[in-house]
């Protein structure tokens, strides 16, 4: 399974997923969904400043911050309801894999990296579209910040 071009934490996640069978991949996704960090208070009180990822089948809101200096480290914040564990799991993959990475590394993630997670069979290709959209929107915001 190729992890070329992926930041180390994301590469590790991809390997975790590809090392196990479809049923265990779902279990892994469920565990990740529980690990999605709570939204910091400054966003909890200002949901309208976040961007909605409409392509997800459940409501998901996203905020991207890029540090002004140095490596322009990227910080990600997500909000998704507990009754949307799959969407939370996808967000958690993004958070665990990309939060704290330099802007250049985030922009360098291949758009189709999620294929390597091997979730198409367990989750269905349709549901995976939300994941692609999440990455596209993160990159758009990062691009706008560093431009």
């Amino acid at each position: 399974m190729s992890t070329d071009g992926l930041p180390p934490q994301l590469a590790e996640l991809v390997e975790d997923f590809s090392d196990v069978g479809p049923k265990d991949r779902l279990q892994l996704l469920l565990e990740l969904s529980r690990e999605l960090p709570e939204l910091p208070a400054r966003y909890a009180d200002a949901a309208d400043t976040m961007e909605q990822v409409h392509e997800c089948q459940s409501p998901l809101f996203l905020a991207v911050e890029v540090e002004p200096d140095g490596d322009r480290l990227v910080h990600l914040y997500f909000s998704a309801p507990p009754e949307a564990p799959t969407t939370r799991g996808f967000a958690s993959i993004m958070h665990a894999g990309l939060d704290g990475e330099p802007a250049a590394a985030v922009l360098g993630v291949p758009d189709d990296f999620y294929v390597a997670l091997g979730l198409a069979q367990a989750v269905s290709p349709l549901r995976l579209r939300g994941m692609a959209a999440m990455l596209a929107r993160i990159k758009n915001q990062v691009r706008a910040e560093v431009a």
Binding site: L29, L30, Q57, P85, T87, A122
Partner: peptide
């Protein structure tokens, strides 16, 4: 709709059928 929702908790004794998979 959510393929994982059943696994977070369900009605006692209920089984899961996922339409996609």
């Amino acid at each position: 709709e959510d393929v994982l929702l059943y696994d977070t908790g369900h009605i006692p004794g209920a089984v899961k059928v996922d339409w996609h998979t």
